[in-house]
Each structure stands twice: as C-alpha cells, then as structure tokens.
C-alpha cells in the first residue's frame, strides 16, 4: 500500500475507533478473566492471589449430569432460533411484498415491527399471561374439550415457546432488511420472465430468492455470532426449576451458579464452554456456506 493512501485513511480509522475500543473493553479485557477457570478464585485475593487448581473445574463439569443437559439445551434452542429466525422473516417479507395496497403494507409492517422494541421483562409478562391457566390459549383448549396445560412448566412445550416467542418478537424487525433487498431487484427481470410465461411461483424461485440471497447470507452470519448471547433475559424471565431440564442454557446456568451460588471459577469454566460452542457453530456455518452456496461468511 502506498504511503499517500494510508494518510488518507486516518479519518476512517478514527471512525472505527469507538467500535474497536468497545471490543477491547468488553471482549478482549474480560478474556483475561478466563484464568479464573483454572483457579480456586477468591474475590478478596483476586486473580493474582488465588490458588491454581489446574483442570479441576473442568473435571467436575464432566462429572455432573447437568453439563450435557445445558449444552444440549443451548445448542437446540440456539439452532431453533437461527433456523426459524431466518426463515420466518423471509417468508413474511415475500408475502408482504405481494400486497398491492400500499397503506395496508405500511401499517402491517409497522405493527409487526413494534414488539422488537419491548424488553423481555415486558414481553415475558404477556407470554406468561397468554399461557396462564386462565389465559386465552388454555381457554381455547378447554373450549375444544381438552385439559388445560401449564405450558411454561412443561418440558414438552418450553423450548417451543422460547423459540416461538423469540421469532415472534424479532421477525418484523428481521423482515425490514429483506423488504429493502426486494426493492433492489431489477423490475426488468420480472417483466422479462412474465413475457417468457413464468408464473408468480417461478418468479419467486428464480428471481426473487436469488436476488436476496446475499442479504440472507449476510444476516444469517451476523445472527450466528450473537445467537448464544441472545437467550439470557428471555429464558431468565420465563423459566422455573421444573423446566431446567429443557430450558436451562449456559448463560442462565452461569448466572445462577456463578453469581448467586458464588462459584466464580466453576461458572467461568462453564462460560468457556459457551465460547467453544459459539466458535464451533460459526466455523461450521462458514464451511456449510462455502459448500452449499459457494460463499464465504468471513
């Protein structure tokens, strides 16, 4: 690179600096704390004063049956959110795109977009009420002559509710990007295809989807990086000891054991597990992407 170019880049680097600083402060510096996973950490003694215990915390993690459960819950819920959180907004955007009434399109878009701005503490209260014994879902079941179920205390339903409500909350927001991508497709292609006699469905398969594919890949990649972080407040607001079996994920477990139970070192070791899962997911998604659509995520 030539010197002249470098100088011209200074302002761009400056623009990047808040992001870089954020990354260093909140992502790199805390990595230092990973050391706690190999220690018997005592807050009063600090990282420098606490005794080293080698891999004891990891050994214990393998000993208890909980670890596998938590790992499985995390992966299942995360994958469910990635898959449905990608497909639903796309389908919704495609459907919305077919609506010809402009005002209806706009208002539907705005309404489904709203839940994204509510915090999970608020949405959870609504969800709890909806699935309440006396809530609408159970009233409908009773009307159909079925027994009411306490969905949020049922290991058969908890994951579905977690994934479902997460998708419900986010799909309006997710659809916006796809709607924007849809407007970017050259209308000439549609005209040409209709002259060639393509049906609406054929247009969808051969023009619309390929047209927004780069956007889909990009959004999926961005979601992937975050997905294991996204579960805590939602699950924390909705779970209870009965559904620990299917709903307890790494974040909630670390919170309970580490902060409430004050087992800082063990919780750090479990938290490290989360990073491993994240990295695995991300790398395999990249491989998958290269293989299937010949496109690199990073």
């Amino acid at each position: 690179m030539k010197r002249k170019n470098k100088a011209g880049q200074l302002e761009y680097h400056l623009m990047m600096s808040p992001g870089i600083i954020f990354l260093i402060v909140f992502s790199f510096v805390p990595m230092f704390g990973i050391l706690m996973a190999f220690q018997d950490y005592v807050p009063a003694k600090g990282i420098f004063g606490s005794a080293w215990v080698g891999l004891d915390n990891f050994k214990y993690m393998l000993e208890i049956p909980d670890s596998m459960k938590i790992l499985r819950n995390t992966v299942v819920i995360a994958l469910g959110k990635i898959i449905f959180g990608t497909i639903v907004p796309i389908i919704f955007a495609l459907l919305l795109n077919e609506i010809r009434l402009k005002w209806a399109k706009k208002s539907i878009q705005t309404i489904v977009y709203l839940p994204n701005f509510l915090s999970w503490a608020v949405v959870a209260a609504v969800v709890i009420n909806i699935f309440d014994y006396h809530g609408p879902v159970n009233q409908f079941l009773q009307f159909m002559g079925k027994d009411p179920t306490l969905f949020l205390a049922s290991n058969n339903w908890f994951r579905q509710i977690i994934i479902g409500t997460d998708v419900w909350k986010g799909f309006g927001y997710g659809a916006i990007v796809y709607l924007a991508a849809l407007t970017g497709i050259d209308p000439g292609l549609y005209e040409a295809s209709s002259i060639d006699g393509a049906s609406r469905f054929k247009q969808l398969i051969h023009i619309t989807l390929p047209g927004i594919l780069p956007t889909i890949m990009l959004i999926s990649a961005l979601n992937l990086g975050n997905i294991l972080n996204a579960g805590f407040d939602q699950i924390f607001a909705l779970y209870n000891p009965i559904v620990y079996e299917t709903g307890d994920v790494i974040d909630t477990y670390v919170y309970r054991v580490g902060l409430l139970g004050q087992q800082y070192s063990f919780a750090t070791a479990v938290g490290l597990l989360k990073s491993v899962v994240s990295l695995t997911l991300l790398l395999s998604a990249n491989q998958l992407s290269i293989k299937l659509v010949k496109m690199r995520i990073f």
């Binding site: 018997d40 004891d56 915390n57 214990y60 208890i64 909980d66 000891p241 620990y244 309970r256 054991v257 409430l260 139970g261 004050q262 087992q263 070192s265 063990f266």
Partner: peptide
C-alpha cells in the same frame, strides 16, 4: 464451594 450450587439446583 465447588459443588453446593449444583446440589441446590
């Protein structure tokens, strides 16, 4: 120290 929180759970 290490095992109590899990037993409580």
């Amino acid at each position: 120290k290490l095992k109590w929180a899990n037993l409580v759970k």
